[in-house]
């Protein structure tokens, strides 16, 4: 028993390898149905439905980008107003200082800029990148996750995790190989 706990302590999880995306998707669905929650799937390209299969729903990204756009829009328009009305008012042919139609093009650009920043840096931040090292990289064959192999990881911190039972479960899902991932 104590042996098991010691092993669990330095174990990050179990990684199952598949040679096609259909097996991975089904294994992910089966694992979720079996009650596993702390898991992740890895593939060389996006697979539609895989994120939902492991119980993940992305809600933050669109909101974040919208927020970036709103900040950029208000900030840009505010900046134009500040420059032409408050900081440096100039009389150009008797036109009003608050010539808002001329603010639109630069405001549009700042909107896009801030929304794009939100999309890129938001995506990286939410994904926890950059993160040069991660336990999954300790699995040698994991290098193929960026070529033609598909992986499913069940983490040791999942309450249902049990080294032997989980291994047997994964092997039953047509996994080509199941490896232990060390912390």
């Amino acid at each position: 028993m104590s042996d098991f706990h010691a092993a669990k302590g330095r174990l990050y999880g179990l990684m199952a390898e598949f040679d096609n995306r259909y097996d991975l998707l089904e294994a992910a669905k089966a694992s979720y149905a079996a009650g596993y929650r702390k898991m992740d799937a890895f593939s060389p390209m996006p697979i539609h439905g895989l994120d939902e299969a492991i119980g993940f729903k992305d809600r933050a990204m669109p909101l974040l980008v919208l927020l970036g756009g709103v900040v950029g829009c208000l900030g840009g328009f505010g900046l134009m107003y500040f420059i032409t009305v408050i900081a440096y008012p100039m009389n150009v042919g008797g036109r009003p200082h608050f010539s808002w139609p001329a603010y639109i093009p630069p405001t549009f650009e700042t909107t896009i800029l801030c929304a794009a920043f939100a999309a890129v840096f938001g995506m990286l931040a939410l994904n926890g990148l950059p993160r040069p090292h991660h336990p999954v990289f300790s699995v040698k064959r994991f290098a193929l996750a960026s070529r033609d192999r598909f992986f499913l990881l069940i983490e040791a911190r999942d309450p249902l995790f049990h080294v032997e039972a989980t291994r047997q479960f994964l092997e039953a899902q047509h996994a080509k190989e199941v490896e232990e991932v060390e912390r």
């Binding site: 992910a28 992305d58 990286l124 991660h134």
Partner: peptide, 10 residues
């Protein structure tokens, strides 16, 4: 930047 092809990341 440590990209690992996780389904969440994708």
């Amino acid at each position: 930047m440590g990209w690992r092809g996780s389904a969440r990341h994708w």
